[in-house]
């Protein structure tokens, strides 16, 4: 059952992001001047995160479920999709397995107020460029 998703109307946001990805691919690289080292965003890995986000948003059910996407947090190379709710139910087990296989880590964590969080973690969303590589 799909209900109470906070992120139901975020399709345009996702589309914007894919547009940004296309720009990145076209330009070849995007330098991150904010961090200590320059980095190149890895479009393939970011696409995996976006795909898992869409998959879980459309297939996860339960009570008061919200599906959240975090990119480049807490580091440029990390990201994840989290599903939080009073209870989380997965009826579409093949979709769930696809999400598992695409992600690098999977955790289920108890949170405050009786909520449960399921996190799919991703690494290598960006590659740091060291001086010798330049």
């Amino acid at each position: 059952m799909m209900e109470n998703y906070k992120n139901q109307n975020e399709d345009s946001e996702v589309d914007d992001f894919f547009e940004m990805l296309r720009t990145i691919t076209n330009n070849g690289k995007m330098l991150d001047f904010d961090s200590m080292f320059d980095s190149i965003v890895n479009p393939r890995e970011v696409q995996k995160v976006m795909y898992v986000y869409k998959l879980l948003r459309d297939t996860t059910g339960g009570e008061n479920v919200t599906v959240n996407l975090e990119l480049h947090e807490p580091f440029r190379s990390c990201g994840g999709v989290s599903v939080e709710g009073d209870s989380i139910v997965i009826y579409n087990t093949p979709a769930f397995m696809t999400a598992l296989m695409l992600s690098d880590n999977f955790e289920v964590i108890p949170k405050l107020h009786g909520k449960t969080e399921m996190v799919f973690g991703f690494n290598d969303l960006a590659e740091y460029i060291w001086e010798e590589q330049l």
């Binding site: 009073d86 209870s87 989380i88 009826y91 397995m97 449960t116 399921m118």
Partner: peptide, 11 residues
């Protein structure tokens, strides 16, 4: 998972 109908997590 191949032989499972559904999976549920709750606290």
């Amino acid at each position: 998972m191949l032989n499972t109908k559904s999976l549920k997590f709750e606290q």
